[in-house]
Simulated scan of single mutants.
Amino acid sequence: MPEILLRHDSDDIATLTLNRPDARNALSIGLMEALDAELGSIAEDQSVKVVIIAGNGPAFCAGHDLRELRATPTRAAYEAVFALCSRLMQRIVGLPKPVIAQVHGVATAAGCQLVASADLAVAAETARFATPGVDIGLFCSTPMVALSRSVGRKAAMEMLLTGELISAARAAELGLINRVVDGAEVSAATRALAGRIAAKSPLTVAIGKQAFYRQAEMDLASAYDYASGVMTRNMLARDAAEGIDAFLAKRQPRWTGT
C-alpha cells in the first residue's frame, strides 16, 4: 500500500503531501492521524522552520471520506472522526511554526477547512473552494469554525448556505487565501514564500504566531495588555537583541532561536 502522507524536508522547510489521489485526498481517519502525528513531530523538530501542506493528484483535498463515514454509522464513530478532525485543525493553529497550504486543485468541505486553518495559503488560478455539505444534507459545521475566522461573516454564510464553488481569485478577495499564481508556479511560489519566512528568527515567528491567534479572541484592551507583555518578553530574547544590533550595524542577523 502506498503511503497516504509523504514528507520531504529541504532548506528548513517540511512539505507534507496528502497522497490519496484516487480518493481526491479525502481526509480518512488514517490520513488525519498521520497528518496530526507528523505535525506533532515537527513541533519538536528544530530543523524545520516552516511547513507546507500540499496534495497529490487532481484535487488538493475533497474533505472527509464519505464512504468511510457511512461504513460505521454510529454516534460514537462520528464523534471520534469529528473530534480527530478538530484536534488536527487546532494542531495546525497551535503549531509553533507557520503552516502554508499549497492549493493546486479543488479544496472542499474539510479540505477548505484545512486551507482556512493554515496560517497562509497560495493557490493556483484554477483552484476552487467550497463548503458543499449543505448539498448532501450535512452542514459544514466544523469547516465553518475555520472559515468564519478567515473570511467575513456574510461571505462565510454564503459559502456555507449555497455550497457553491468559488474561484481562487474570489477566495483571495475574501481573505481565504493569500496569493493566486499560475498553476505551473504554485509549488515554486509557495516555497519562495516559505523560504522568506524560514529566514526569520524561529523564536520570533513562534512568539508572533501564538500571539496573533490569542489576541484575536480578546477585546481591544485585553489584546493590548497581552500584546504589550508579549513584546516585552520578546525584547528580552537574544534574537531580538541580535536583530536590532544587526539592523543598526547594517549587517545580516545571526539567529540562534533563543
Rank of each mutant, 00 (worst) to 15 (best):
M157C: 02
C112Q: 08
F82H: 10
I244S: 10
E68W: 08
P253T: 00
V81P: 00
L147I: 12
G94Q: 07
M231L: 13
Y213S: 08
F212H: 09
F60H: 06
E79V: 14
E158V: 04
A109N: 15
V48H: 04
N25P: 07
V205D: 02
G133T: 01
K209R: 05
G63M: 05
A237M: 14
L6N: 09
A240P: 04
S150R: 15
Q113H: 13
D36G: 06
R67S: 14
R67Y: 12
R251C: 13
C85R: 15
I166Q: 12
L5V: 02
T190V: 04
G183E: 01
A241T: 05
A54I: 00
A109H: 15
A194D: 07
A71R: 02
P132F: 10
A189L: 00
A211Q: 14
M159D: 06
P21R: 01
L6Y: 11
V205N: 08
Q90R: 15
A241P: 01
L160H: 02
K250M: 13
T126R: 06
D36S: 10
V205K: 05
K97P: 13
A199K: 01
C85E: 15
V145I: 06
M157H: 04
A101G: 13
L5D: 03
A227Y: 04
T72L: 01
M1D: 11
D9H: 08
L114V: 10
L248M: 11
Q90P: 11
D9S: 09
V145W: 03
A62P: 00
S201Y: 03
G183L: 02
